[in-house]
């Protein structure tokens, strides 16, 4: 059980902590804990914003009357699927060199692929909903 004195000291120390002050710094630090962004609900990674935007526009141009949100969600999910598969291929290529790997490394890589498969399942499900919304909206 933490004592009241210790709690107060922690609070005081935390108040003295210096976090980022500028808007740009705050924006950067917001992604400090971001590893790959696959677990985010959608569009987790900012670095793919351009690709998402381009695919969203392509979808909107080819499906008349489609909702912008649905197109963006579909594009974001599609880009996530592509990124997840690339990440999985990297893990698999390492796993194929299993002769040079320890049992622990093999287990870790198998776990990584399993997690990526879960992310892929979620992204496919998000895209399915977005496709439905796209087709319902026009």
């Amino acid at each position: 059980m933490t004592s009241e004195r210790k709690r107060r000291a922690n609070r005081n120390n935390a108040a003295k902590s210096t976090g980022p002050k500028s808007l740009a710094g705050k924006r950067r630090s917001k992604n400090n804990a971001l590893r790959h962004g696959f677990a985010a609900a959608s569009g987790g990674s900012l670095e793919n914003a351009e690709e998402i935007k381009a695919l969203t526009e392509t979808l909107l141009q080819s499906i008349a009357g489609a909702s912008i949100d649905a197109a963006r969600n579909a594009a974001s999910a599609e880009i996530d699927i592509i990124r997840i598969r690339k990440a999985r291929t990297v893990a698999q290529s390492r796993l194929l060199n299993f002769l040079s790997l320890t049992d622990v490394e093999i287990t870790t890589l198998n776990d990584t692929i399993r997690k990526l498969n879960d992310y892929e399942r979620r992204a496919i499900s998000r895209r399915k909903k977005a496709f439905n919304a796209l087709l319902d909206g026009c």
């Binding site: 141009q61 080819s62 499906i63 008349a64 009357g65 598969r85 690339k86 999985r88 291929t89």
Partner: peptide
Amino acid sequence: MGRMPAKRADNQPLTELDWLFAEPPLLGN
């Protein structure tokens, strides 16, 4: 549906999707 996307031969993807197939998830070999 809106305008028909640019089309090629029956088994070739739409020009808008060239990028989609540009870097498939393949192993090095």
